[in-house]
Design a protein around this nucleic acid. Structure first.
Lengths: 345, 345
DNA sequence: CTGAAAGCGCTTACAG
DNA sequence: CTGAAAGCGCTTACAG
């Protein structure tokens, strides 16, 4: 009715504008928007139409300041292009979206010293209601500080430091590795099986190695330190120990590369050296997240439910935010995926 | 000095706490933090140490409300697991991080009708300072509304609708496709070259087809509609027309699959039907973003600088936010990557 | 069912 | 160089 009703409005409406147009108080507008407290049907209808006419959208900042809730989750990662980043993010984004929360993501470049870095944190209590922290993305002191603050946190692929009761989500790395190596031994009768470790502080790698060792032990195969090297969960790095083994003439039946990326590197190195995979040396990976099934030979690996991990972590974080409680540990099952690089078919 | 200086503090400090501890006003604290206005060296030092002691972090909400700036960029995507999503996001995240902004990302599920959806937008003027919009993720009316509001927007892989002067970033699809098809014709002497379109509304696909047609025309090869079908930039979908061609016995020398994903599908379909690639039929893709170089045969394609596109879009958006100006169009160069699926080597 | 008012934690003219 | 105070746009007891 008024002269501004024809879509010519150029500035943003506030709750006061809506209240005025609807002929109610801002408290009432707030009530209908948030469904907090009773409102007469007519009143609500008027408010909604005022909102539509003015194209009103509540300011997230004002709402956040007044309610002390940002309605935003944060995701702290390191390498944004890591192999499982895409499905992980998809899970997190999906869970966040469904809950109506917003998602702030930040890829750390390097961990800055806690002293200088404390003030300029990209993600924290100052801009989110809770944080999903990927392994190694936050120093222990910061983790401890946020925890003491009662700030909701969920860790991905990392056990909480010290005695902090921070929930965490990860895969069944050990049993996955165990099954995989069992397969190599039992089905293919390999006995000289090498293992490539991931980066230093990688817990996943630690558990995979444990599974590997358990499998050897269960089959009375002595553990040979000469068959363990660092592949760094990385294509390039993984090629180095393989070349060394080849040069030294180390007898090897199969290589458990630690993860798929390393497996790709291993296969390349092997093929470049004239070795046939799997005929001469078999190779297996872990994760099954890439499109490595197009490789030749198709990669035998262990499927890790990465997307589900992201979703589950989000669910736990939301629960922590809303109820103050969450599962201390979510361990997601892994599953062996047999293709051809192990020697099958 | 006071009894709360021993790290036992459990609640968050505000600017008032810092001011009190430093013995100054909150205005001064604000000035030292934001380096806005002159402050005596001593005063600043005291403020900084109060900040450190209290582990103070300014509330993003309060800051945003008071300054009318969220210092946050939004990224609106559709399919978070699309092939070029990872590098695109990496570029965006990198650009955002370096500028000190935060990044809010949202994967739309489906475009909701503008009427009902207007109020509950995940990303907009209410929570960001500007938006990076991937092709097709925002309806024209919403785009027009935000534009009229003077809200900073940058489009990715989409030309702005109507006459809106919204900057956009995309690749040189046409010339990339042109060079690729030229190669097939000139080097390999193929003349029956098929083309697989992407999804309906995909502008990239449109330009690639144009490059394809130009190449044919330049070499006096008549355009044959029977050699064009829909591959949907998708592995599964791309297999369908290939099977049809094979069944019908259509003579084909090479297939330009539209993008890499479709190329993978095409190669599978071909190999399953007993055709050799590239001996019987050559296949080429576009994007070069996946790890398809591990495929056999390694895929000949056109490299698209996806990460750079993300970064460039971010740069333009920041510029738009800060200066009100941006380049209307950023066209990033593509480059042919010859591997083996085209018949080379 | 509704409104007046305080307050969330900052920034920003305005004085001095 | 510094401070007092208004105001950003909401939510939330508190009254009625």
């Amino acid at each position: 009715m008024s002269s501004t009703s024809d879509g010519k409005a150029i500035s943003r409406a506030t709750i006061a504008d809506v209240a005025e147009r609807a002929g109610v108080s801002i408290a009432t507008v707030s009530r209908v928007i948030n469904e907090t407290g009773p409102v007469a049907e007519d009143t609500a209808a008027q408010v909604w139409s005022a909102i539509a006419e003015l194209k009103y959208r509540p300011s997230a900042a004002a709402k956040g300041l007044a309610s002390r809730r940002t309605h935003t989750l944060g995701f702290l990662v390191s390498e944004i292009s890591a192999p499982f980043f895409t499905p992980l993010l998809r899970g997190i984004e999906g869970g966040t979206r469904e809950s109506g929360y917003s998602l702030l993501i930040h890829a750390i470049q390097e961990i800055e010293p806690a002293v200088t870095g404390a003030f300029r944190r990209p993600l924290g209590e100052h801009n989110t209601d809770g944080l999903l922290v990927f392994a190694g993305c936050l120093e222990d002191v910061e983790l401890a500080y946020l925890y003491k603050l009662g700030f909701p946190l969920v860790l991905l692929h990392q056990t909480p430091p010290n005695d902090l009761a921070i929930p965490y989500v990860t895969f069944e790395n050990k049993s996955g590795a165990r099954k995989l190596v069992d397969h190599l031994i039992e089905v293919h009768d390999y006995r000289r099986i090498a293992f490539l470790r991931g980066p230093e502080d990688q817990e996943d790698s630690y558990w995979r190695e444990l599974g590997y060792r358990e499998a050897l032990e269960a089959h009375d195969i002595p553990f040979d330190p000469a068959l363990v090297a660092v592949g760094g969960f990385n294509e390039k790095l993984a090629q180095i120990p393989v070349r060394t083994w080849l040069e030294q003439g180390t007898a090897i039946d199969a290589i458990f590369a630690g993860d798929d990326e390393a497996a790709v590197g291993v296969i390349s190195a092997l093929q470049q050296a004239g070795q046939r995979v799997p005929e001469d040396i078999a190779v297996v990976g872990f994760d099954d997240v890439h499109l490595y099934h197009y490789m030749l030979p198709p990669l035998t690996t262990v499927h890790a439910p990465v997307e589900q991990a992201g979703r589950e972590a989000t669910v736990q974080l939301l629960q922590l935010i809303q109820t103050g409680q969450a599962q201390p540990l979510v361990l997601l099952p892994t599953e062996m995926v047999i293709r051809r690089s192990c020697g099958c078919e």
